[in-house]
Design a protein around this nucleic acid. Structure first.
Lengths: 169, 169
DNA sequence: TATTGTTATACTCTATAACTATA
DNA sequence: TATAGTTATAGAGTATAACAATA
């Protein structure tokens, strides 16, 4: 009786062998995750550029603001988008020049701004977002709803473990 | 009786509502996947830089070569790494200057080269790879082996659907 | 003519660190 | 002193397109 299954081997294999196999399994998972995400991300970046002449970080910033109609401070955006402050300034500058967002002075802290979508920005974003959502559905159509839910919950477990490291999230 | 479960609603909801819910589910999955991958990728990039003074694309190129001791042509590397040719030239130039890889003239096609790891390159890569593998295991320790296998197979389904689009892989 | 790889260029995204102004 | 945001800079990664050598 052959036992190729990892779980079945738990009690027959020595610790070192088991760890090596688990390491290989983890590496396989990570490489697959990395390449799958990259394929999807490349496709979406290309479509955002050719269809809407925009980029993922710009789209992402607008998406953050759409979820927070009261506006978000620069530092909040920096944390949520996982990039340092200087970059937020740059992207915000671009979007402000195109009248898609505005900086509103904070009434209590005169060092701070809240960034908000303008009406034009909200309108533009809503149009992009609905097309974007359809793209995502199209690209993920290989999974059925049950599989998608499984994946969402596995990612949640993974993410909460990851949040113990470094300064992410 | 409330029915919040997607599957339970399949026969009672109209088509349009169902599609909207599936779209939202897909979007949620994609956003979670994107942020989870980014967290892990950032952590690994940082560690590669601080511990080995290298980058993910450089590491990735060496990893490709390690799996192909006979060498890979520039065009092959370009396809596998999902970037255009000019970039492969640049990364290969860097690694060649550090004596980690060599370009070997193809005996049959005088336009082409095969890129191979040097002995020093192989040694350097093996050291990095074993540390890298331990990092990945550490960062993925939130999932047990069964969950990792589930994730691997879900990603496979997803990836094979994605490969129908554009020029990826 | 088509293909392999290089070169030159430009653009986006990124981090870092010094800076201004407030707190 | 510490914090919010900006500025300036440098570097990595990327795509595109024109190019040379060879097929």
């Amino acid at each position: 009786m052959k036992m190729n299954n990892v779980a079945a081997n738990l009690d027959t294999m020595d610790l070192e062998t088991r760890l090596t196999e688990e390491h290989h399994q983890s590496l396989r998972l990570w490489l697959r995750m990395l390449s799958t995400t990259a394929m999807m991300e490349n496709e979406i970046r290309n479509r955002l550029r050719t269809e809407f002449d925009t980029t993922l970080p710009r789209f992402d910033l607008m998406a953050q603001l759409e979820r927070h109609p009261e506006g978000l401070r620069m530092g909040e955006l920096s944390k949520r988008m996982m990039v340092t402050g200087g970059n937020i300034t740059g992207i915000t500058d671009q979007l402000e020049q195109e009248n898609l967002v505005v900086r509103v002075a904070d009434s209590k802290d005169r060092r701070a701004y809240s960034v908000k979508l303008t009406n034009a920005g909200r309108k533009t974003f809503e149009q992009m977002a609905s097309v974007h959502e359809a793209w995502v559905a199209e690209l993920l159509a290989g999974l059925n709803p049950t599989q998608k839910n499984q994946m969402i919950s596995l990612l949640s477990v993974m993410k909460s473990h990851l949040s113990h490291f470094s300064n992410n999230e």
